[in-house]
Computed example of a mutant assay.
Amino acid sequence: MKDSFSHYRQAVKYLDGFANLPGAYPHDGKQPSRYIEYLKRTQYFFDLIGNPHKSIKAIHVAGTSGKGSTSANIQSILTTAGFTAGLFTTPYATSFTEEFKVGDQYIAPNELADIIDYLKPFVDEAYAKSPYGGPSHFEIKTAIALIYFARQKCDYIVLEVGLGGEFDATNAKTNKVASVITNVGLDHTDILGNKLEIIARAKAGIIKPKVPVFTTAKDSKVLEVIYKIANKNKAPLTVVNSTNPNQDLASAVCAHLGIDKKDIQRGLKNMFIPARFERILKTDIIIDGAHNPDKIKYLVEKIKKEKEKYNHLTLIFGAAQDKPAIKMLELLHPIADEILFTKFSNPFRKAWNPHELMKKLHKKVNRKKNQDAAFLDPIDALYDSFLYHQVG
Results as ranks from 00 to 15, higher is better:
Ala62Ile: 05
Ala62Pro: 04
Ser69Glu: 09
Thr70Met: 00
Ser71Gln: 11
Ile74Trp: 10
Ile74Met: 07
Thr80Lys: 03
Thr80Arg: 02
Ala81Gln: 10
Ala81Lys: 12
Gly82His: 08
Phe83Glu: 10
Thr84Arg: 09
Thr84Val: 09
Ala85Gln: 13
Gly86Phe: 11
Thr89Asp: 15
Thr90Ile: 15
Thr90His: 11
Thr90Gln: 15
Pro91Cys: 06
Pro91Ile: 05
Ser95Phe: 15
Phe96His: 02
Thr97Asp: 03
Thr97Met: 08
Phe100Trp: 04
Phe100His: 04
Gly103Arg: 03
Gln105Arg: 11
Tyr106Lys: 07
Ile107Gly: 14
Ile107Glu: 11
Ile107Lys: 08
Asn110Leu: 13
Leu112Met: 03
Asp114His: 07
Asp114Met: 10
Asp114Pro: 05
Ile115Phe: 07
Lys120Ser: 07
Lys120Arg: 13
Pro121Ser: 00
Phe122Arg: 02
Val123Leu: 03
Val123Lys: 03
Val123Tyr: 04
Asp124Cys: 01
Asp124Ser: 03
Ala126Ser: 05
Ala128Ile: 14
Lys129Glu: 11
Ser130Asp: 08
Gly133Arg: 01
Gly133Phe: 00
Pro135Gln: 11
Phe138Thr: 05
Glu139Pro: 03
Lys141Leu: 13
Lys141Asn: 12
Thr142Met: 07
Ala143Leu: 04
Ile144Gly: 00
Leu146Ala: 06
Ile147Gln: 00
Phe149Gly: 06
Arg151Gln: 06
Lys153Gln: 12
Lys153Tyr: 10
Cys154Asp: 10
Asp155His: 14
Asp155Leu: 01
Asp155Gly: 01
Val158Pro: 13
Leu159Thr: 03
Leu159Glu: 08
Glu160Ser: 13
Glu160Ala: 14
Gly162Glu: 07
Gly162His: 09
Leu163Lys: 05
Ala169Asn: 11
Ala169Arg: 12
Ala169Gln: 08
Thr170Val: 12
Thr170Pro: 12
Asn171Ala: 04
Val177Cys: 11
Val177Phe: 08
Ser179Arg: 04
Ile181Leu: 02
Gly185Arg: 00
Asp187Ile: 01
Ile191Gly: 02
Ile191Pro: 04
Gly193Met: 06
Asn194Trp: 09
Asn194Lys: 12
Asn194Ser: 08
Lys195Ser: 12
